[in-house]
Simulated assay, not measured.
Amino acid sequence: MTEYQLKDREKAILRFVIHQFILTANPVGSRNVSKKYDLGLSPASIRNVMADLEEMGLLDHPHTSAGRVPTDKGYRVYVDSLMDPPVIDISAKKIVDENLTLQNETEELLKITSAILSDLTNQLALVTYPRFEQAELEKIQLVKLTSKRILVVVSVKSGLIKTITLEVDAEVKEEQLSSIQQILNERLCGLKFSEIRATFQERVKDISSEKYRPIIRVFLDSVDKIFTDTKSVDKTFIAGTKKMLTHPEFFDHEKFQSVIELVENKDIIIHVLDKNKEEAKSDLAISIGQENKDEKLSDYSMISKEYKIGDLTGTLGIMGPKRMDYSKIIAAVVYIAEQLTEELTKQR
Rank of each mutant, 00 (worst) to 15 (best):
V152N: 07
S34L: 00
Y129M: 11
T101K: 15
A12W: 07
P43K: 01
N32F: 02
R213G: 03
E261Q: 08
R187H: 07
G320K: 05
L82R: 12
I336N: 01
V79G: 10
L344S: 07
V156P: 11
T313I: 09
I196N: 07
T246K: 10
E174F: 13
T71L: 10
E279N: 09
A51H: 04
D252T: 13
Y4P: 06
M56S: 03
L284H: 03
V333E: 00
V204P: 02
F227N: 07
N104F: 15
R15W: 07
Y78S: 02
L297S: 01
H61T: 03
L100S: 12
L160C: 10
T121V: 04
Q176R: 15
Q347D: 10
N122G: 08
M56Q: 05
L124V: 03
T341V: 06
R217Q: 14
T313L: 06
F132S: 06
E105F: 15
V204F: 01
R31E: 11
R31C: 03
L262V: 08
N292A: 07
T236E: 09
D38R: 15
K7T: 10
H61R: 14
L137K: 07
N99F: 11
T101G: 09
T101V: 15
M83A: 08
K148T: 06
K162G: 08
A337E: 01
I183V: 15
T241W: 01
F256D: 05
I95K: 11
K36L: 04
E133N: 05
N99P: 03
H253R: 15
T241G: 03
K305S: 10
V259A: 00
D283E: 05
K111D: 13
D234A: 12
V259D: 00
D252V: 13
M56F: 04
P43A: 02
D252G: 09
I116W: 05
V218D: 01
L245S: 09
I329T: 14
I215D: 01
I226E: 05
A66L: 05
F237S: 00
T113D: 02
T64R: 14
A332N: 11
L14M: 01
A198P: 02
S178P: 03
K328C: 03
N99W: 06
Q347H: 14
A239Y: 06
D119Y: 08
G29V: 02
D252E: 13
L297W: 02
L124S: 00
S114M: 03
K36F: 01
A135V: 12
M83K: 12
S301L: 10
H19M: 14
D119G: 05
G310L: 08
L344A: 06
I140F: 11
V218S: 12
L184D: 05
V28T: 13
E306N: 09
F21P: 01
L160T: 12
Q123P: 05
I18W: 07
L297E: 00
L53M: 00
G40M: 13
R213S: 12
L262P: 04
